[in-house]
Nucleic acid binder design. Sequence first.
DNA 1: ATAAACTTTCAGTATTATTTGAAAGTTCAA
DNA 2: TTGAACTTTCAAATAATACTGAAAGTTTAT
Lengths: 169, 169
Amino acid sequence: MKLEEAKSKFIQQWGSLGSKWGINRTMAQIHALFLITEQPLSAEEVMETLQISRGNANMNIRTLIDWGLVYKEYKIGERKEFFTGEKDIWKVAQRVIKIRQRQELDPIVQILTEIQNIDTTPANQEEADHFTNQIKSIKSLADLADTSLTKISSSNQGWFVKTFMKLFK
Amino acid sequence: MKLEEAKSKFIQQWGSLGSKWGINRTMAQIHALFLITEQPLSAEEVMETLQISRGNANMNIRTLIDWGLVYKEYKIGERKEFFTGEKDIWKVAQRVIKIRQRQELDPIVQILTEIQNIDTTPANQEEADHFTNQIKSIKSLADLADTSLTKISSSNQGWFVKTFMKLFK
DNA sequence: ATAAACTTTCAGTATTATTTGAAAGTTCAA
DNA sequence: TTGAACTTTCAAATAATACTGAAAGTTTAT
């Protein structure tokens, strides 16, 4: 396979992966491009490579910066901004985990906590018990996930790989 | 908080969680409804409760059955089909993990394997090396995730909780 | 064989998410 | 202070996705 073809396949596939994960396709593609490109790129170059508009490029690069997956970089003698991607895939995974945990797991944990205590009247006691039990077990699993993800997103890769390899051999 | 209010909050939140995870809102809501409803429900009842059309209800219930999260159930003397939800949240998690692993992780692993070997010409040796290295480390992480998820989706909850609690105390 | 009771399908419609591109905003060198 | 070079914003357009509901299909009791 040719290098350019391989790059393009990777970018496409990463984009489609992203879109199944609630990350928009373009943002995932831009991220893929930065993952495999060593030198800094300008917004212009991203636009050209992925055939997207200025606004789209700008907005998604900005979000990637917010997520800590892309960095601004200035070249001496150049007015333009350049960007590079975080290349350490472990760091990338940790940042994505942390963000999605905040955005998705936290709200559900909060709701589960809120609705754990409900008024029960004699009329619906049995129904209420079933509901409360289900919510409790969902909350337990959510808490376990939360703890695990927090730990993962603050471990170093060495520890993690070693521990998991032992566990999952 | 009243029971009905709590139920509705849970259904809404589960729906919104689903939609951030590439699972459509309605399907996630139907699933939430089944999680917290003890007795079997007919398609009709799902339609009414969630205010959705027959086609929508049917299609999403069908997918939930395919995913192993909802079961058909027949009541004697009733022509209609009834459905119940898988109530064990650990089983639910395992099934969702397995399905998403197949649908999302597998394709990326396959692409990564494919593009690991590319033609290199003197002209782009350095670029090709960087690319290959990045792909290799992404593949390592993907393989680790794959192994871990496979293990998780075939463990029993007891083992998992025990192991993780020790690990992540 | 018929028809009532029920389920499934799918073309058209509605909703939601994403993208564009032109205008407004900013920065900087002279 | 001006204007060229660049970045950001956002309303409108487009594209992707989900939903509806009526019609077609299926099953079952008689």
